[in-house]
Design a protein around this nucleic acid. Structure first.
Lengths: 179, 179
DNA sequence: CAGCAAAGTTAGTGACCAATCACTAATGAT
DNA sequence: ATCATTAGTGATTGGTCACTAACTTTGCTG
């Protein structure tokens, strides 16, 4: 397998480990085991543990932005927001991604690099949502806030409540999210 | 100083350390230094590091509930919610508390005890807000979601934006923030 | 003041973990 | 066939950290 493919595999594994245990408690050993390579080899693919973490953050945001782009395709305004909200709700099944996002905010508390990256990517996401929906700032804030609450409910492992919550927050009436 | 007073001091210090660094990365050494006692003595006051963390969570929720109780005193409905929202916004100056809350959600991802406590205390807070405001579920969800977004902005150290956000989310003033 | 309990310390241990180093196996171009 | 590059490993190391054991100090009370 090429180094690039391995790096991709590492990011997938790292997202799970970091999401479950947080940056500090996740071990490079566990990531390596999940990938199926030796632990030292991670340091051939990435310069440091933190580099893996930062790359994982980018990886998650990249995927999320692609997802939003696809969901809002051809839609505008409140319709686009709804579609993106449903798409995010569908992401609930991929818990590692949500957990990873929570872990990122936590890590941002004390690490300058993480905070800088998190700010940049959140701003980018914000602008993307604004561009795709065209709705006003206040509405986007509500949208973002809903997402944050969904993250927390995912962390607390309340999937049923989370679904109801998603519907309530999106202002939906009995629609079934199947993106 | 009595052991009980020390325990209280430990919780104050622990809240800051856990909030800044997260559960795993925070060290008992740093907590002890902040309190002004030797590190091993913490283990006379608490059975383990996790016990300190769990007690810190309780400590934060206790303070928050007291704060909400005071803010909503004599008010009902939307007025009570607004008062509590402003009170929470004021809490932004006590960043350790907000960061501690984020760290709690993160830790809940992988620790059963933390998750159980977090669920219990969040449910309690939810009920308190419902009791004090008397508003419907959807409105309370929005209120909670706003709080979560405020936490994230606190983690990203965006106080100015956070203030505007607080106002916008509470629906107080229709300002036009530009993030 | 004796004695005793609670408050607090110093010194230490075992476990764990990120990162390094020196090495081997496979691949592919000339 | 040979050489060079790429993929990958085992052993180790330096450092950190939660937690323990054994000891000392302080302050109160009969």
């Amino acid at each position: 397998m090429s180094a690039d493919e391995r790096r991709e595999a590492v990011l997938r594994a790292a997202r799970v480990e970091f999401g479950q245990h947080g940056y500090a408690a996740a071990t490079t050993e566990a990531i390596a085991r999940r990938v199926g390579v030796s632990q030292p080899y991670l340091f051939r693919l990435f310069p440091s543990k933190k580099a893996i973490f930062l790359a994982s953050i980018d990886y998650c945001f990249d995927r999320l932005e692609l997802r939003f782009e696809a969901a809002a395709d051809g839609l505008t305004g409140e319709d686009a927001l709804t579609a993106m909200g449903l798409s995010y709700n569908g992401l609930l099944e991929d818990r590692p991604v949500l957990q990873m996002q929570l872990q990122m905010w936590s890590a941002a508390c004390h690490d300058d690099e993480v905070r800088a990256l998190a700010r940049r990517r959140l701003a980018g996401l914000w602008q993307q949502i604004a561009r795709l929906s065209g709705t006003d700032e206040k509405r986007i804030m509500q949208f973002m806030a809903s997402g944050m609450l969904l993250n927390v409910f995912a962390a607390l492992e309340l999937p049923r409540i989370t679904e109801q919550l998603g519907e309530a927050l999106m202002g939906l009436v009995d629609t079934r999210p199947t993106p």
